[in-house]
Design a protein around this nucleic acid. Sequence first.
RNA 1: GCGCCCGUAGCUCAGUGGAUAGAGCGCCGGACUACGAAUCCGUAGGCCACAGGUUCAAAUCCUGUCGGGCGUACCA
Length: 579
Amino acid sequence: MPGKSFYGLNALNQDSEKRRIPVTPMKDTIKIMILSAARDAHEKGILPSRDFPEVFLETPKIEAHGDFSTNFALISASVQKMSPKKIAEAVVDRLEDVRNWIESVEVAGPGFINFHLHPSAWHHVLEAVHTQGKRYGAVDLGKGRRIQVEYVSSNPTGPLHVGHGRGAAVGDSVANILSFCGYDVQKEYYINDSGRQIETLGRSVFLRLKALLGDTEPFPKECYQGGYIRDLAREILELKGRGMALGPEAEGITFCARYAAGKITEGMREDLVRFGVTFDRWFSEQSLYDAKKVDRTLSELKARDVVYEKDGALWFRTSAYGDEKDRVVVRNGGQPTYFASDIAYHRDKFERGFEKVIDVWGADHHGYIPRMEAAVEALGNARGRFKVILVQLVNLLRGGLPVAMSTRAGEFVTLREVIDEVGKDAARFLFLTRHHESPLDFDLDLAKKQSNENPVYYVQYVHARISSILKVGKERGIEDASFSEETASLLLAHEEIQLLKALSTYPDVIRQGAVFMEPHRVTFYLMDLASLFHAYYNKHRVLTDDPALTHARVSLILAIKEVIQNGLFLLGVSAPEKM
RNA sequence: GCGCCCGUAGCUCAGUGGAUAGAGCGCCGGACUACGAAUCCGUAGGCCACAGGUUCAAAUCCUGUCGGGCGUACCA
């Protein structure tokens, strides 16, 4: 116990030590200032209650309201039974500006406390970015805890289309952000390589195969219509000869199903690699059956007494866990439903030791969420350990007009085609320019445009531009761009302070992106930062006649480059040196 | 019918209860003999769908209404 307080004193008293730990974001430091001022006011008997709310510090939209502002006094009013203004004044009177950051503090409006900081306060941000480098913004939320993100998981019955691309972009970026924030993340793809759909796939290919040999039987509507089915049939014909089509149907279908599913899965894997998405594991549904895990799951459900028989089928009492009705897990006839294997799959995930399990689903599956949550809970896992991220659909446009897509007719624009046409970077970035639950118009023509209409290049251009400046700088003999307190203090232009402020909020953006699992926050942040940089660039020269100022500015743009690169990486987008 | 998501500038969208609601695009007018003009600067544009409620404070939370999307299978 004595050690603890000693440590605290020690850390506060040594000025030089203090300077070496600018790692604490500015906001936290100011929050602590406010709290200790409030405590002090309480001890002096000015504030009656010692029950203080959490301090929210925000950056006001209006510059006249300061660099930071807090509603602390307002939300304390009811507890303290005092007017917000009086509380605010009591706090302001006792603020101890240990780091000498504060230029002025004022009580404004109904009781806001507004902080105006010295420009020098912001220079520490630059130090933080330089010392932390690639780790800048990496708030440790996960502390090494294991989390799994499962995404795409498209059935191997046809190629990936644009909608899957959005799911891939969102899932992959969420996984990246969580990983950056200290979680031990596993990226997984679930392959539905079993059941009725796969049988239909096999039948489709088998029938096309027979047709190749002159069979005139009409092709059923419920079969997969796409041209890729014929291609697969041709491959099989080449591989196995005519015997396959003429032999027993059941065997033919089974072979075709397995062959087609394997081929299609392989194709999806290749498309995803081109898209910059790689998984740690591809998990086969069939493997659950092979390992008897579906059976064992059903036994466990029986043991837990959450299933019952009715009309010859086995029902899961999901309604007892918030679902609107009970669901069948084994059909009349003994066939397990997909729900059964999904339960087994999620049981397996938790058995593998993940503390949290995230599924990224298309919005058309949202009706499935309550039953899956019910299942997870019925198996003894706390509700919060399972989360579904819903991704809304994508409307594909070309020049503002919708591109006709019909999955059933087999006419759709594949993800592969989109990547080939607009490029991986543009596609991934644009998929992340919306909240994932908001529908997205994806315009192929716009995605290709190398103009201000296309935000990808706007952000990447910052990186290329800075790289270019650094190159020129190097030619002029500027080698050292490391942080230095003396030169950093020369960064006093309004645009420079704005950039430093923007850099200081990056950790917050990342934290929110991780907590809410919303990568679009990073996208928007990057566009804002890019905008500030471009404005700065057009107004000020980085490479000047003044060596000290040049050094300061080079170290500033280096920090911007670092953050841009880092943010783009989290989105799965490259940061080019040249464009 | 019931459930979920959405309704914010002409268009596409941000906005975890805070002060005067923000971007981009589009329109119009400007800025390169200097580090990359894929850039920048300047105007204009709003009953945050509507009506109540909660509170010091609501685009944000609650209830209802209207409009759009999706779901509501012994399909996935």
